[in-house]
Amino acid sequence: MKKRGIGISCNTHPAGLKGGGDPSQALIRVKLDGTLDLVIGAVDIGQGCKTILRQIAAEELSVPLEAITLSNFDTDIGLMCTGTFASRVTFIDGNAVIRAARDLKDKIKRFVGSQLGVEPEQLEMADNRVFVRDNPEKGMSMAAIGAAANWGGAILVGTGAFTPGAGQDFDPETGKMTAIASLAFGACVAEVEVDTETGVVDVLKLVQVYEIGRAINPLLCKGQINGGSMMGISFALTENLFPYYPAVDFAPETFSDYILTTAADMPKEMIYDIVEVPHPNGPYGAKGFSEMTASAAPPAILSAIHDAIGVWITDYPATPEVILRALEAKSTS
């Protein structure tokens, strides 16, 4: 018999290490043709930080996205960054990039001021050029700035670094503290169908909402949510390194027996929404949230299984064997 159920989960996720000691650095330099090199230490593992960090630098410096080349490939000369983990890169590297861009902006204005004989405070930066606020005709394009600086024996480099605070204001009585590292929030509803003859669980529908401060790139956020959902379904239903732990028998050795979700396991309906409540310390209010997209679905799925067949599965994953054993235990008790 096929039985349906609905379950809900709520979760929260910090960006990076809340105890501090989690810095990132960024460096931006103006090249000969006025385009920019952005150097960071974070690795893009597909989440898209190469795009997001360039977007942030382009926004700060009023230059086109295409004018910025991002370099993060050399760990010898690359900058300090604790790594791509814990949804920290947009939040922490993003802040470092903003600081580097603002530092560079100051230096560009001082350089252009000396070239045009005006005070840096009178200058504005917009549309890929720097100009006098009260006389916009008078100014220099980024291409002219790049040529004049680099051929003129100057170097225009902006640097910035950021680390979340160590959270030392923790109040042991109330638990209250200033969450300088971001906290994102999520909720997930899962609808499942359990086949009580075979033990197979189908996830029919996932509805999720995430409060992420600000979606700097909504398409990349969508990718994180849908991708995290597929990982979550995998954790909940199939992936198991030691199915008979603590015994190591039948430990999977290949993708034939360590089962990942495929396109065929995708719920027919995957609905999500993003809520934006800007975080005071995030880059443009953004929080880190990617990792929580993988942890939202599993508890909702196990709750939905309980709703469907009346048994609580308390260990992941709820494989057909686990479901059938639980049903058997229920019927004999």
């Binding site: 969508k222 849908n226 995290g228 959902s229 597929m230 979700t261 495929t262 396109a263 995957m270």
Partner: peptide, 13 residues
Amino acid sequence: ISGNLCRCGTYQE
């Protein structure tokens, strides 16, 4: 596409 594994889970996209 069900014979192609994607660990990033991009199936919907």
